[in-house]
Design a protein around this nucleic acid. Structure first.
Lengths: 186, 186
DNA sequence: AAGTCATATAAGATATGTCCTATATTGGAT
DNA sequence: ATCCAATATAGGACATATCTTATATGACTT
C-alpha cells in the first residue's frame, strides 16, 4: 500500500502526469526508501483513479506528446492523511547480504574479506551520494515545511550509511584477526 | 533466492525436519534479517528437493508424529558456497515509515511527535531484545566459527537499533522546535 | 472421553514487486 | 530525410511473500 500513498502524497505538490511524477519527484525522493519502476507507478495511478482517489484528464501539448494529468481528489486527501497518521509495526529489513555473512564460515577468510570490502566500497559511494545531494530552495511556506521532512529522511539515509560503514569496518577488523580455516566445502 | 540458500545453509548444521529447522534455527537467526513463514519454508524445502539440493526421508518416531528429515546434498553444498561468494548489489531497504515521515507536513505537529515517539519506543524495545539475546556455547570448532559470523550479524542489529534511536531522537528534537502549522487537510 | 498443546505438513488465494517488451510523439542533431 | 533522445503510457510473464485454512499425530490434562 505504501506506493499507493506515496503517489497520493506526491500529487499533493501539484497535479502531474505519471512521467513527471516519476522523473521529477519520485526518483529523487520516495525511490530512496520505496523504489518502484515505471510500470508499477502507472498501474498504481490507474488503480487510484478507479478508486476515486485521483482524477486523470488527458492534456494535449504542442511541444510534447499528449499526457494524462492526474490530480488528487478530496477523497484521496482524506485517505492519505488517515494513512499517514497510522501507527505501523517497524518494517522488516530484509538483507541478503546478512544471509551471506551469517553462513560465511563456509567461505575462506579471503573470500569473506573480499566480500566485505566490496560492500564497504558500495556504502562509501552511497554515503558520498547522500552527502552531496542537493536540497532545492524553498519558494513557499508549504515547500519550506516539506523540506524539513525531506531533510529528516535524508538525515536518516546519511546516518544509515555511516552506520553500515562503521559496522563493515569492524567486521573486517574482526575477520582479519581470525585464522583461515580454509573453505571446507568449496 | 535468499530463503532458498538460507535453508541450505541451516541444513549444513545437521539434517532436520522443516519443523525443527523453523523453530530451532530459522526463527532464532535468519528470521531476523530474512523472515519467512512456515508455508514458505515447507514449499522451499520441496523445491530444494526437486532440484536435488536436499534429500528428504520420512522418519517415524514413537514419541512424535512422523516427519520428513532433510539433508543437504553435495550438489546443494556446491550451489550454496557459490551463492555465498557472489557479490550482490546492496539490497534496497524499503520502509513505509519513511514514506509517512516524508509526507508528514500534512499532519499536525502533535500527530508527528506521537508517531515518532511510538517508533522510538519500538526501537528501544528492539534494542533491548538484541542486547539481551543469548548466544549459545560453542561445543565444536565448527560451531565456534559459526558463532563469530552470527555475532557479526547480531552486532549489525544492535548498531542499527542504536542508529534508529539516535535518529528518531534528533527528529523529535527538530520537530519539537517547529511552529505547528496545524493539519491543513485533516 | 474430551480437550488442548506441541509437533508436523500442505496448499489455495491474494498482494506485491520485477523484468521485459511494446507503442507513440516531439524536438533536435546530422 | 533520418536518426536519436526525451517524453509518455501500457501490459504480459514471472517471482516472491503473505494470509488463511486445512489436516494429522501423539502427549498431557481434566
Amino acid at each position: 500500500m505504501s506506493l499507493h500513498f506515496a503517489i497520493l502524497g506526491l500529487l499533493t505538490f501539484e497535479p502531474m502526469s505519471g512521467y513527471t511524477l516519476k522523473t521529477r519527484y519520485f526518483d529523487r525522493s520516495v525511490a530512496h526508501f520505496w523504489p518502484a519502476d515505471q510500470s508499477q507507478i502507472y498501474r498504481t495511478l490507474q488503480s487510484l483513479e478507479r478508486s476515486g482517489e485521483v482524477e486523470g484528464h488527458i492534456v494535449a501539448s504542442d511541444t510534447r506528446p499528449k499526457s494524462r494529468l492526474y490530480a488528487i481528489t478530496e477523497a484521496g486527501r482524506t485517505a492519505l492523511v488517515a494513512w499517514l497518521a497510522q501507527d505501523r509495526p517497524v518494517a522488516v529489513q530484509r538483507d541478503d547480504f546478512l544471509v551471506q555473512l551469517y553462513f560465511a564460515r563456509l567461505l575462506s577468510r579471503d573470500q569473506v574479506l573480499a566480500m566485505l570490502q566490496a560492500r564497504l566500497d558500495q556504502h562509501v559511494r552511497q554515503r558520498d551520494y547522500f552527502d552531496t545531494l542537493e536540497i532545492p530552495e524553498a519558494t513557499s511556506d508549504e515547500m519550506r515545511r516539506q523540506i524539513v521532512f525531506g531533510g529528516l529522511t535524508l538525515d536518516f539515509a546519511r546516518r544509515r550509511e555511516r552506520m553500515m560503514i562503521a559496522w563493515i569496518e569492524a567486521c573486517i577488523a574482526e575477520i582479519s584477526g581470525l585464522p583461515d580455516a580454509g573453505s571446507p566445502f568449496a
